[in-house]
Amino acid sequence: MKLNTTINGMPKNLEIRPDDYLVDVLRANGYLGVRQGCDTGNCGVCTVHLDGKSVLSCVLLAIKAEGHEITTIEGVPQQAATIANFFVEQGADQCGYCTSGTVMNILYMEQLVEDPTEEEIKHFLKGNLCRCTGYASQLRAIQAYFNLRRQQKSEGQVPRGGYEDENRKPESP
């Protein structure tokens, strides 16, 4: 069957099976920044956005994306790079396998919680597991990222909100 959807701003018409999960469809179509750590919706590694909201693509049937907009980490290159810089600065980039999902969820958090506290960060991202870092370095990186965003906002550089507000170039893998 066909799946009509938009991926990273590009309309797509993909051949899928009714029981395909979104993560498999995305990976099969070259969105390899979407990774998978489990298949039970428990680790957050596979996080992508559906209409701007975080979803776990390992437990979401691909067909549910019919008519919706999917964003993967490939679709937010600048934002991902900004966050990545803070991760790298703090050494929070160990094996890195968990990070693309975490970055996507940070971007979603940014839309919902203005200037999150430590507790809010921990709570919001608690579904994003990481076996390497022990989270402390990630927390430092995320806080530094939000400090930057706060600063940017106070200087009027960026309107409030995550990737939706920024100029996104449609990008296909």
């Binding site: 990545a84 790298v88 050494g91 980039d93 890195g96």
Partner: peptide, 20 residues
């Protein structure tokens, strides 16, 4: 404390792992 050389690629989702 130099940054990890492969860090940016890993965090921004570059296809670098076996299955990729």
């Amino acid at each position: 404390s130099l940054p990890k050389m492969d860090g940016i690629s890993l965090v921004t989702g570059k296809p670098v792992y076996t299955d990729d």
